[in-house]
């Protein structure tokens, strides 16, 4: 009964990312990882909120933050979330070119976001907010920097996937990989929602 022929043509299933057991495992495991990441960022948010009054002699949130810059960064990241959604829709449609294109768009937006963040940190540093200046400074850089590191890792990860699979077509192996990368990217966006609200808006407003 064990016929050894591999099926030549794989037909497109409705959810290619969850068509194999490997894919389902990856999907579930990655979600659980994100559940853990929630606590990880929760700890960082808590630390920041506990220490944000500890300004000492250095500049405080209201002296530093600019609403316009944060608004642009937020829009960039939100849009990158939408492009990655479109990538997944194209994947389910079997439109591999579309998947690649939207993923590249996501990467581009991610790099733009990182650029703004580096500029932002540079500005703050020159405004007198070093990493060791105050407890506020340390906790701010740690929270926003950890988020930035996540963005950087996401950019690198998706780029590797895009180069590796530039002309393989959609397969049962790479569909789950793209899908988990997109989940990760959305999660980065979720974290940013809290960062712009809790760190920047509350920093300026109250």
């Amino acid at each position: 009964m064990a016929d050894h022929q591999a099926v030549e043509k794989q037909t497109l299933p409705p959810n290619p990312e969850k068509a194999t057991l490997d894919g389902r495992n990856k999907y579930l495991g990655f979600w659980f990882f994100l559940g853990g990441e929630t606590v990880l960022f929760g700890s960082l948010f808590g630390t920041y909120l506990g220490l944000r009054g500890g300004v000492v002699d250095g500049p405080g949130p209201a002296d530093l933050f600019h609403l316009d810059l944060v608004f642009i960064m937020t829009m960039i990241l939100l849009t990158s979330s939408l492009t990655s959604v479109f990538a997944v829709i194209n994947m389910k449609r079997g439109n591999y070119k579309g998947l690649l294109m939207w993923m590249w768009a996501t990467v581009a937006l991610g790099i733009a976001f990182l650029g703004f963040e580096i500029y932002e940190f540079y500005e703050y540093y020159h405004a007198g907010l070093g990493f060791t200046t105050s407890a506020f400074a340390s906790s701010f850089y740690t929270l926003v920097g950890t988020h930035g590191a996540h963005v950087a890792f996401g950019v690198a990860w998706i780029t590797v996937l895009l180069i590796r699979y530039r002309n393989t077509g959609l397969t049962l192996t790479n569909a789950p990989k793209f899908n988990t990368a997109v989940l990760y990217w959305h999660f980065i966006d979720v974290v940013w929602v809290f960062i712009f609200t809790v760190v920047y808006l509350l920093g300026i407003g109250g």
């Binding site: 591999a6 043509k9 409705p14 449609r93 079997g94 077509g169 959609l170 397969t171 049962l172 569909a175």
Partner: peptide, 30 residues
């Protein structure tokens, strides 16, 4: 027991049903 080749490109178009669902989804996402 006939195992699938996991690195073979997926062929074919999605079903009508899937197409419709994806269209709705695009709208919801927008």
């Amino acid at each position: 027991s006939s195992h699938q080749d996991p690195s073979a490109p997926l062929q074919g178009a999605p079903s009508k049903n899937t197409e419709r669902k994806l269209k709705n989804e695009t709208r919801t996402q927008l």
